[in-house]
Computed example of a mutant assay.
Amino acid sequence: MDADLRSRTLFARDDDRAVMSRILLPAPGLVVFSLADELLLFRDTGLAGLADGPWPCGDGNPHGNPVLM
């Protein structure tokens, strides 16, 4: 969808699996991912951007928080 609410297909694949994409945090408060044939964007989530470095989730530990406060 563009700013004038016109839709356009950027990519299409004939696939019936409900597969979730990687989750992207492109800007503070914005979460973007796809599920099956839908692109989902969530704004104003309160999430910050990812921490810089190779291990943004608490240095790779399973209890790490992936976002900066």
Rank of each mutant, 00 (worst) to 15 (best):
V32W: 01
S21H: 02
P28C: 01
L41N: 03
E38I: 03
G64F: 03
S21K: 02
F33W: 03
R8A: 15
D37P: 01
T9Y: 07
G46V: 06
V31S: 05
A51E: 09
L40A: 06
L35D: 04
T9F: 08
P28G: 03
V67F: 15
F11R: 09
A27Q: 09
M20I: 10
R17G: 05
M20S: 09
S21N: 00
R13C: 09
R13Q: 12
W55R: 14
R6V: 09
A36S: 11
D14S: 13
P62S: 07
V67H: 11
G46L: 08
P26G: 02
D44F: 00
P54M: 09
A48T: 04
A27I: 00
G53N: 00
F11P: 01
G64Y: 02
P62H: 04
V67N: 07
L50D: 08
L10G: 14
D4Q: 14
V31G: 01
L50P: 01
F42A: 12
D15C: 07
S7C: 08
D59M: 11
P66H: 09
A51K: 14
L68P: 01
R22G: 12
G49Q: 12
L50S: 11
M69F: 10
P66N: 07
R13A: 15
D14R: 13
F42K: 06
L39K: 03
L25H: 12
A36Y: 04
D37T: 12
P56W: 03
G58S: 08
G58R: 06
L30H: 02
P28I: 02
R6Q: 14
D14W: 02
V67Y: 15
A12Y: 10
A18F: 10
I23H: 03
G64V: 04
P62T: 06
H63L: 13
T9Q: 08
G58Q: 06
R43W: 06
V67I: 15
G29S: 02
L39I: 06
